Amino acid sequence: MTGMTDSAFTRPARFSPEEWEARVQLAAAYRIFDHLGWTELIYNHISLRVPGPDAHFLINPFGLHYSEVCASNLVKVDADGAIVGHSDWPINPAGFTFHGAIHATLPDAHCVMHVHTTPTQAVCCLKDGLSFTNFYAAQLYGKIAYHEFEGITVHRDEGARILASAQGKPVLMLRNHGPVTIGFSLPQAFSLMWLFTRACEVQLATQSMGEATPIPVAVLEKCVRDSLNFDPKFGAGQDAFSALQRIVDRVDPTYRR
């Protein structure tokens, strides 16, 4: 399968070219998460808005590992989490509680990502949360919000509270739970998640050795202004996402089917 591209996979007639492109991109993201070790059995979620006038979104089929997700088996849902069209799989009700609320309320929330990786969840469990004391965290200064733990996110009313907690910030730390990133595109949401993950990894490594050196607020603010991860002129993560997509294409391009 090495060297195969989307030309080797035919778009099913039931999907428009625009929806199929979104499906392929989202399926690639699931495979990239698997490649990076960001999976949690069959749990966690990445959701993506379907291009067009309808408030429809794509999310992973509940029961499949990320390595099994492909463009055609992604599930299309409306803002209430009801499945649109046919799907052989359900969705995880814990997944769309806050994804749906974010997508339905924030017009620029085209992609929402949530993980339970050990370093990110560990920092979400810390009383003081993320420490802006390393290169990666510095780029997230002023972009972090927190939501208090309420248990498993299966209750619809919590979606509104999660949305309120986000306060328009692109990174929401669900305390004792894990991070959520919100992007105007899938690559930008991925870039936020990658930055947050690296920030947490470095923070935990630093704390294991001693006290971190503080960074002045003025320098933190400068780092945010200078970060290419948020600038659409520089792709806002598209180049990095494309590089990782090329890797998963070489490993197993069947996510494109």
Results as ranks from 00 to 15, higher is better:
201 E>I: 10
232 P>Q: 04
77 V>C: 03
156 R>S: 10
217 V>M: 06
241 F>L: 12
200 C>A: 11
74 L>Y: 06
200 C>V: 09
3 G>I: 06
63 G>R: 10
35 H>D: 09
118 T>C: 06
30 Y>I: 11
207 Q>W: 02
34 D>G: 14
72 S>R: 13
244 L>N: 02
211 E>Y: 03
151 G>R: 04
168 G>D: 06
163 L>V: 10
206 T>D: 08
36 L>R: 14
130 L>Q: 11
165 S>E: 07
40 E>A: 14
51 P>A: 02
165 S>N: 14
246 R>H: 08
162 I>L: 13
17 P>M: 00
226 D>Q: 14
31 R>N: 10
52 G>N: 01
191 S>I: 00
226 D>H: 13
27 A>T: 05
169 K>L: 03
43 Y>P: 04
197 T>A: 07
144 I>A: 15
146 Y>I: 10
62 F>S: 09
29 A>P: 01
237 G>Y: 00
238 Q>L: 14
91 I>P: 03
148 E>C: 02
171 V>F: 04
82 A>K: 13
127 K>F: 09
64 L>I: 00
6 D>Q: 14
128 D>F: 06
65 H>C: 06
255 Y>A: 08
18 E>A: 15
49 R>C: 03
214 P>G: 06
255 Y>Q: 08
216 P>T: 03
182 I>C: 07
135 F>L: 13
71 A>E: 02
218 A>D: 14
202 V>L: 14
67 S>H: 09
157 D>M: 07
123 V>K: 08
183 G>S: 08
213 T>Y: 07
102 I>C: 06
21 E>Q: 15
91 I>V: 15
5 T>K: 05
208 S>G: 15
183 G>E: 01
117 T>E: 05
76 K>R: 15
164 A>C: 08
215 I>R: 01
115 V>Q: 11
15 F>P: 07
30 Y>R: 10
243 A>R: 15
58 L>N: 01
170 P>M: 04
144 I>C: 14
19 E>Q: 05
169 K>S: 01
245 Q>L: 09
139 Q>K: 15
47 S>Q: 05
64 L>H: 08
158 E>C: 11
183 G>H: 00
168 G>M: 05
118 T>F: 11
178 G>Q: 12
252 D>G: 04
103 H>W: 08
23 R>W: 01
22 A>Y: 04
132 F>R: 02
70 C>Q: 13
88 D>T: 06
187 P>Q: 01
156 R>M: 03
157 D>W: 12
185 S>H: 00
142 G>S: 00
130 L>N: 11
120 T>N: 13
226 D>C: 05
248 V>I: 15
211 E>C: 06
171 V>H: 08
51 P>V: 04
225 R>C: 09
73 N>F: 07
93 P>W: 04
150 E>D: 12
78 D>K: 05
84 V>E: 00
114 H>Q: 13
172 L>P: 09
227 S>P: 11
28 A>F: 02
245 Q>H: 12
47 S>I: 02
11 R>K: 13
